[in-house]
C-alpha cells in the first residue's frame, strides 16, 4: 500500500508487530513472529500458509480470543481486548449450537431485539440468503456439513458485522460443495460489503476468493509476502494470470507446482 492510498481510506484492521509463543512443557514455542498487516474496509484478505504455521493463532488474536505475546491489534484505531459482536468469527469446526434449531442459531445475535417482527424478518432474510429457506426448524445434526456451514454464515451475517473472520470454514466440505460455497461467499461479500479475513491452507481457494493474499511462512510464522490478486469476479480459473499467481504462491510456500 502506498502512502497516497492509505490517506484515501484508513485501514480497518491493523496488526502491529504481533508475536505469539506458547509454553509447551518448559519450552517456549514461537508460533508467530512480528506480524504487520493492514486491512482496508471492505477488503477480502486471505491468510495462506501450511498447516501449523500459526494462521488460526493469528486470526484468534485478531478476533480477541487470544492475547498476543507482543504487539497489538487495532480496529478503527481501537485496541482489540476481547471478542465483540461487531466482528464475527466463523469457525472451522462448526460453531453453531447443536442444541438449537436453525432459526434459533441464526437469531443468536438478534436475541435481544425488541421488535420481534423485525427480528423475524432479519432471521428469515439471512436464512434465505444462504439458501436454507424451509429448514428453519431443523436441527444441525439433520443437516449436511455444507448446510451447517451456511447456518453459521447466516448467523454471522445476521448481526451485520463490519468484519468477518473465517478460519478454514470450508475445510471439512467435499470439493464440489466447497466451490459452491466460495461462489456464494463472493456473492454475499459483494452484496454486503464486509471486510473479510479468511484463513486457508488451500492455494486455489485463496486465489479464487481474495483481493490480497498474505502468505505466512512455516513456523514460526512470518509474512513471506503479500500477493495482490487483481482479477475480476467471477474468476477464470484457467486464465494465464491465475496460473502466474498460483506459481508464485507455490514458490513462496516452497513447493513445486510440478508433480
Amino acid at each position: 500500500m502506498t502512502q497516497h492510498e492509505s490517506k484515501i481510506t484508513d485501514p480497518k484492521v491493523v496488526v502491529e508487530g504481533v508475536s505469539k509463543h506458547f509454553m509447551r512443557r518448559d519450552e517456549e514455542l514461537p508460533v508467530l513472529e512480528d506480524i504487520d498487516l493492514a486491512v482496508k474496509p471492505g477488503e477480502f484478505v486471505c491468510i495462506l500458509g501450511p498447516s501449523g504455521c500459526g494462521k488460526s493463532t493469528l486470526l484468534n488474536i485478531v478476533a480477541g480470543f487470544e492475547k498476543p505475546s507482543a504487539g497489538r491489534v487495532t480496529i478503527e484505531g481501537e485496541e482489540v481486548t476481547g471478542p465483540d459482536p461487531r466482528r464475527v468469527f466463523v469457525f472451522q469446526e462448526y460453531g453453531i449450537f447443536p442444541w438449537a434449531s436453525v432459526w434459533d442459531n441464526v437469531a443468536l445475535g438478534l436475541r435481544n431485539m425488541t421488535d420481534k417482527r423485525k427480528q423475524q424478518e432479519t432471521v428469515e432474510h439471512y436464512i434465505n440468503l444462504v439458501g436454507l429457506g424451509g429448514f428453519e426448524s431443523s436441527y444441525p445434526r439433520e443437516l449436511s456439513g455444507g448446510m451447517k456451514q451456511r447456518v453459521e454464515v447466516a448467523r454471522a451475517l445476521a448481526v451485520s458485522p463490519d468484519v468477518i473472520y473465517m478460519d478454514e470454514p470450508f475445510g471439512a466440505l467435499d470439493s464440489l460443495t466447497r466451490l459452491t460455497m466460495r461462489a456464494e461467499l463472493i456473492r454475499i461479500w459483494q452484496a454486503e460489503e464486509k471486510t473479510i479475513l479468511f484463513v486457508t491452507h488451500d492455494v486455489d481457494e485463496s486465489i479464487q476468493l481474495a483481493e490480497r493474499i498474505v502468505v505466512i511462512s512455516d513456523r514460526p510464522g512470518r509474512i513471506a509476502e503479500v500477493v495482490d490478486v487483481d482479477l475480476p469476479h467471477p474468476r477464470d480459473l484457467g486464465s494465464p494470470e491465475y496460473g502466474q499467481i498460483k506459481n508464485r504462491l507455490y514458490e513462496l510456500l516452497g513447493v513445486s507446482n510440478v508433480v
Binding site: G82, D84, P85, V88, F89, F91, L108
Partner: peptide, 11 residues
C-alpha cells in the same frame, strides 16, 4: 468453539 461463539455474540 461453542464457548467462543457465545463470547463472540456477547452472551
Amino acid at each position: 468453539v461453542h464457548q467462543r461463539s457465545a463470547a463472540n455474540f456477547g452472551v
